[in-house]
Amino acid sequence: MSKQNILTSIKSAKPSTSAQLPNIPPFNPLKGDLIEIFINQISANAATVILLNQEQSLLDLITQKFPTTKTILSFIPEIASTFQLSEIDHPKQLNNLDLAILPGEVAVADNGAIWVSGNAFMPRVTPYITQQLVIIINRKNIVSHMDQAYEQINLTGLGFGVFISGPSKTADIEQALVIGAQGPLGLTVIIK
């Protein structure tokens, strides 16, 4: 009933002009090294960036970087979780999760955002509830602008996905920047 009323009201109110939907042109790619621009952008948001060199293994890097970490939930094949998801029956039990490791699908140099597909991990709260977050991104998947990223995202069967561009933050008290608001206290991006 309300639906019909709203739609009828819109039909009689909307402008008669057609107002064409514009085509979105491809934007000029950024000048310079996309990896470098991406690192600058996401570092400005207080993320730590590590370029993985070929001799180094991901496992060594993580062990070195997070030596005292007790609980790890990993969704990349190189690193094992410290517990099984079947051991928890409610997402809130991840409240003491020290470290989550997720694969990034595509990253945007222009603004430092990384798309993390909800198909790559579960439960959905993982990248938010964890104290520390690590995202692994392949250097081949760094693009210039958001339009390329949205084009590249795999929507098949997707229930949820998020662009992440840093650790959670707030400036709600007198605009003083505080890293670590309700989500992770830190974000480490590993480019392989």
Binding site: N45, G112, M122, F160, G161, V162, F163, S165
Partner: peptide, 15 residues
Amino acid sequence: QPISIYTSHYFKPKP
């Protein structure tokens, strides 16, 4: 900011 920290996209209810 160039983009906010989280730009979250929801399509389906969680399992």
